[in-house]
């Protein structure tokens, strides 16, 4: 067992006297523990007022994205042994979003952008009685984009997004790719106007922060580039 100093960002909106601050907790941990285990131990054994989101605890629900030692990641996957100094952990909320309480950020704007890209299959041709056919190659083309768990690690690590909050951001653009490149979809013409603007794909300056932040290892920047290519070549 090791002693870990966990420095946690705290903010209570209901207490006007308290400005945002860091609080440090000392937690007993197994070197194989995840940061989520530490947060649970703090909440369950030391301070019940600490607020954070989590659910599945194995990287598929996307609830527990936060900034840990300066980088966005899922707390449930953040293995202590992967940190240079596992005895000093700093936990902060995702950057650039309003904070509701402690590590809980306001994701309303993030999901509003998601809805703007029309994130659903558009196909006006009446479907057959069985499935629409799709070749394994066509299916492969959208595979990586379907891995996204909407954790917001990417969009909140994107400097273009920090600078320009109207930018649709990597998560929404990835979703746009997922449907625009689906061989069964006929909706690109309906979706294109929000992409082909300064706040659409062109605000992506290929900084690759999103790729580094993505816990599902999706090459988001590549997908955005494919959307750009589609726009310039008018392949729609």
């Amino acid at each position: 067992m090791i002693q870990v100093k966990v420095k946690v960002y705290r903010f209570n909106p209901e207490n006007d006297q308290q400005k945002p601050r860091f609080e440090t907790y000392t937690v007993e941990a197994d070197p194989k523990d995840k940061v989520l285990d530490l947060l649970h131990r703090i909440k369950w054994e030391q301070d019940g007022t600490l607020a954070f989101r989590r659910s599945c605890a194995h990287g598929i629900c996307g609830s527990c994205a936060m900034k840990i030692n300066g980088a966005n990641m899922l707390a449930c996957e953040a293995n202590l042994k992967n940190f240079k100094d596992p005895t000093n952990i700093i936990v902060e909320p995702l950057q650039s979003l309003p904070i509701i309480k402690d590590l809980v950020v306001d994701l309303k704007d993030f999901f509003k952008k998601y809805e703007i890209v029309k994130p659903y299959l558009i196909n006006k041709t009446p479907p057959p009685t069985k499935e629409r056919f799709q070749s394994p190659e066509d299916r492969q083309l959208i595979d990586e984009a379907t891995w996204c768990i909407q954790c917001a690690s990417c969009s909140t690590s994107c400097p273009s997004n920090w600078k320009n909050p109207n930018f649709l951001g990597p998560a929404a653009l990835l979703k746009s790719y997922r449907y625009n490149f689906d061989s069964r979809d006929e909706g690109t013409a309906e979706r294109i106007h929000v992409l082909d603007t300064n706040d659409g794909v062109w605000r992506c300056h290929t900084i690759f922060n999103c790729v580094e932040a993505c816990p599902k290892d999706i090459n988001i920047t590549w997908h955005i580039s494919q959307l750009k290519k589609k726009l310039v070549s008018r392949e729609y």
């Binding site: 659903y120 499935e131 056919f133 070749s135 394994p136 959208i142 689906d182 979809d185």
Partner: peptide, 19 residues
């Protein structure tokens, strides 16, 4: 299940393109 496919659910495919 066919409805889910028609909604766009990305099932894995057989070589001939079926679910």
């Amino acid at each position: 299940i066919y409805e889910l496919e028609h909604m766009g659910c990305p099932f894995s495919r057989t070589p001939e393109g079926k679910i």
